[in-house]
Design a protein around this nucleic acid. Structure first.
Ligand code: SF4
Ligand code: SF4
Lengths: 127, 127
DNA sequence: CAATTACGGACTTCGTGTGTCTATGATAAC
DNA sequence: GTTATCATAGACACACGAAGTCCGTAATTG
């Protein structure tokens, strides 16, 4: 029951991309050096962010990654969902009874955390 | 990033122990049959609950497990902490800078979920 | 003593997270 | 067009923890 390190890398990368938003896209080499992680591994993480529609990529020389769409709308939850998936933290023995009491409590507790992560946008931390 | 199945078993067991609270302690055999899980495995889970002070055990014939202390005070969070540990879900690269912005957001989000789990007591679901 | 029950350690199995390596494809500069 | 740069994808290796199983020991009852 831990957040993956990949999620940690993704959060740092996204915050960096938003804070130092250049006109030129920034390559994975530079992003990897900032965090002391291998570029090939970070590229896999970035590909997930691309498929989630959070960043866009450009091949070739002077290529790299850039935030896609409105920066003000990107929340913590978007990034976490892109890395960890959208399935519930609490999965039980198959049946998935909707009216089960334990199920309801766990899901609403998870919902409380997700609401918090959804309401805090990355742009708020970029100063 | 999932809750362990052991946590699920622990929640069901505790709810059963509170709802059908008998004067006699109930053995692990009976508890295991209710959930379709091996008794030896469930006993390990129950030992964790004992060490957390949530239940008390009695050896010998007619022994078993019984809820310990006030049943009204036992919350979801108590059980989850006993199984999953009390460490934060979000652990980062060692330094643990307290004033880091990402860190603060993740911790407060986790706090929101824990508050929810702390405020819902097991006794509320036992009817 | 004998039966019952909890406790503990050692062990196996399996899935996933965390990386690395390498090949392929796309694009810009020359 | 050629070459250098950069992202993408798959295969692979490794470590670690979750999920159980098995068996021996201790404590209590009768
Ligand atoms: S009783 Fe509820 S929480 Fe338990 S396994 Fe069924 S649906 Fe899940
Ligand atoms: S910058 Fe903050 S979130 Fe990132 S590793 Fe350091 S303390 Fe953790």
């Amino acid at each position: 029951m831990k957040y993956s390190k990949a999620t940690n890398y993704a959060l740092h990368t996204m915050l960096y991309l938003i804070a130092i938003a250049p006109d030129r896209p920034v390559g994975v080499q530079q992003l990897a050096e900032k965090q002391g992680v291998s570029p090939t591994y970070l590229s896999k993480i970035l590909t997930k962010l691309v498929k989630a529609g959070l960043v866009e990529s450009a091949s070739g020389a002077n290529g790299g990654y850039r935030v896609k769409g409105k920066k003000e709308d990107i929340s913590f939850l978007d990034i976490i969902h892109a890395l960890e998936g959208t399935t519930s933290l609490f999965e039980c023995c198959g049946s998935g009874d909707e009216r089960c009491v334990i199920h309801q409590v766990m899901l609403s507790a998870e919902e409380a955390m997700e609401q918090h992560l959804k309401n805090t946008k990355l742009i708020d931390l970029a100063k």
